[in-house]
Design a protein around this nucleic acid. Structure first.
Lengths: 173, 173
DNA sequence: ATATTAAGTGAGTAATTACTTATTATTTAG
DNA sequence: CTAAATAATAAGTAATTACTCACTTAATAT
């Protein structure tokens, strides 16, 4: 990855997250990145190729999180760790997650694989915890997750994250 | 509203919900609606005007829901009614809600007013129920709401809605 | 009946879009 | 040190886009 390649990825991620993939022309990306428009196509073939490269890089980061959670000893610890993920998304990762969530709603580019590993961990942890219907419970928790992520990513500073997290923990004691 | 006007709105809503506002050209809307492209601009001024008209119509429908919930006697009934909203979205309203949720992620068109009335009802109900921190609790519930709506609208038939609803109710007894 | 307004069309248009190509600068390898 | 490979650019291009305009058709009011 050259410096300019990285610059393209950074700008594209920022703009895609902000305005949506389809609303951002490659000319705007090039301008923001301070490179010629042609360079985008030299390195990423086409606009979707650029999107895929961004998603790929994000997925690799996620893989790290997954293995961290898997390293936790008890199934309880693993479940709560997953439930609290949205509260600990680093500010620098906001654009990536915003992009992921915005793409969910656009038929053409949606990639379902994203939440699959989390669901697998959840189910096996819940089975270990003797839940009767582990899959429904996992779906419930994943729904919560989507909701918290949405609130935190969109409302940002408007909502008091700590208070929200406290309220959630009280409920799940 | 003439027949063709309605046809334009129907096609636009369907396509916007499916592919995202920016990904749908007015030419595609006209084609799908079986009208000339010019007619869109005659009736709605511009593409954003068409979007606004769709949102306005949706908001009026929501207003009906809000007054139905307000009519419930106990605060408990009002809170649970709100929490279960996503499970009772009519199939025909899916496109509208998909559009609302997809627009949330696009800086330019997002309209926050949508969830405001629901939050107000929630807070006053929770205050009535003597909750210490009604606003945090309301934010928590609204986060759930977003999560359930996301799951139901996107996964559709993949997730067992009834089982999920059951699991939710058990948790909130 | 006729005049006025509104609904609807179809062929434009200027600007923008994703992408290409010919060319030049910069690395890297032997 | 030089040649081959790669990085980068600038100036295109064909297709598409949102929107306009001159016009025809249908509805409504007097």
């Amino acid at each position: 990855m050259t410096e300019k390649q990285q610059s393209i990825v950074n700008s594209a991620l920022k703009l895609f997250a902000d305005k949506g993939f389809d609303a951002v022309p490659t000319s705007a990306i090039a301008k923001d990145a301070g490179v010629s428009e042609g360079l985008i196509f030299r390195h990423f073939q086409n606009k979707v190729g650029l999107l895929n490269a961004i998603m790929q890089m994000g997925k690799e980061k996620i893989a790290d999180n997954v293995s961290e959670i898997l390293a936790l000893n008890t199934p309880e610890a693993r479940v709560t760790a997953i439930m609290e993920i949205p509260f600990y998304i680093a500010e620098e990762d906001y654009p990536f997650w915003k992009l992921v969530y915005s793409l969910k709603w656009q038929n053409d580019y949606y990639d379902d694989e994203m939440s699959k590993p989390m669901k697998d961990i959840l189910i096996s942890a819940l089975v270990e915890m003797k839940y009767i219907d582990a899959e429904s419970e996992a779906d419930l928790i994943l729904s919560y997750l989507d909701g918290f992520a949405t609130t935190i990513l969109l409302k940002g500073e408007v909502v008091d994250k700590n208070k929200l997290l406290q309220t959630l923990r009280k409920k799940y004691k």
